[in-house]
Design a protein around this nucleic acid. Structure first.
Lengths: 155, 155
DNA sequence: AGTTATTTGTCCGTATGTATA
DNA sequence: ATATACATACGGACAAATAAC
C-alpha cells in the first residue's frame, strides 16, 4: 500500500512494489502488467504517478512498453558469448537514440564497447556476455590428452 | 526550432536539439543548461515537454540534475583501469535504485559486472574501464631486452 | 471487411513541496 | 527572508496504436 506521508515519492513507491512483484515471480517474464488506469484506480493515484513508475522500470530494463498494448515484463534475452581479444578495453554506456534504432536496442539496455588499437565493436548488453581468455595452462599441462577443448580452432 | 507538425514528438525534438549542443561543445562539460521555465518560454512549449526532454538526456547519462539547481552537462569521469582475470564473464546492465544509492551511481550510468567462478565485482560504467591481459609474447621474444613493445607484435 | 473500445503516448495547465542561490 | 529552480502530483484533453467485436 502506498503511503502519502512517507519520505519517498508515490511513483517510487509504486515502482518498488512492481519491481518486487517482478523479482518474486508474481509477474513472470512475458506477463502483462495491469493497465495504467487500472493501477491508477487501484492505488488511488493519478495516472501521472503510474506513468512515472513505469518510466523507472523501463529505465532499469525490467519492462517494455508499446503504444496501445499493456506493459510487459521483459524476457531475459539469450546471450551470445563474445571473446575479448588481448589488450582490449571494455567499457559500457547508454546508447543514443540513433544507436538504439541502428542496433534495435530496447530502452534501459546499455551498450558494451570492446576496443583494441585496431578495432572497436559494440554490443547490446542484454544479448551479449564478453568473456576473457582462459587461464594459461601451467607448464607441462600443455596439450593434454584432449578433453573438451580442442587445441586447434574452435570455429 | 521545434515543429509541431513533425512526426517526432516535441520533447524528443528538444532532447535532440540539446544533445546536439552538448555534442558540438556549445554546452561543454560543467556548463549549466537554461532553466526549465526558460526553455519552456523560449520554445513555446509546456514545462512538461521540457522535463520529458531532460529525462531523455538524463537517461543517456549526458546531464545531471539536482533539485533547486539548473541541470548541468556531466563531466566525463576519470576512469580507473580494472584488470579482468582469465576466464571471466563481463556483463552490463542498469542498476536498481538501491544499487545506485549503494555505490553512488548517477542516473543513466550502467553497472559493469566482472564474474569468475570465485568472485564477482561490480563497477559504475562511467568510472571504470575493464581491460584484458596483454597479448602473450611470441616464442623467442620472451623476456626480451625490455623495450616498450615486443618487436614482432602487430599490436 | 469495418467499428468500437481499450491502452499507451503526448501535451497542456495548475498547484504544492523542497532544495538551492 | 525572498527568489529561483527542480521534484512531485493532480486534472484534463486529444492522438495513435492495438485489441475486441
Amino acid at each position: 500500500m502506498l503511503d502519502r506521508r512517507a519520505d519517498v515519492s508515490l511513483y517510487r513507491q509504486l515502482a518498488s512494489a512492481l519491481r518486487d512483484q517482478i523479482r518474486h515471480g508474481e509477474l513472470p517474464p512475458g506477463a502483462e502488467l495491469p493497465s495504467e488506469s487500472d493501477l491508477s484506480k487501484r492505488h488511488g493515484v493519478s495516472r501521472d504517478v503510474v506513468r512515472d513508475a513505469m518510466a523507472v522500470l523501463r529505465a532499469e530494463g525490467l519492462i517494455a512498453t508499446v503504444r496501445g498494448r499493456r506493459a510487459m515484463v521483459r524476457e531475459p534475452a539469450v546471450k551470445v558469448s563474445v571473446q575479448a581479444p588481448p589488450a582490449a578495453e571494455i567499457t559500457a554506456r547508454m546508447p543514443t537514440v540513433d544507436e538504439r534504432r541502428h542496433w534495435n536496442i530496447l530502452e534501459g539496455v546499455p551498450l558494451i564497447t570492446v576496443r583494441t588499437t585496431d578495432m572497436e565493436t559494440h554490443h547490446p548488453a542484454d544479448r551479449v556476455v564478453v568473456h576473457t581468455a582462459p587461464a594459461p595452462a601451467p607448464d607441462g599441462a600443455l596439450y593434454g590428452f584432449g578433453g573438451d577443448e580442442a587445441p586447434s580452432d574452435s570455429g
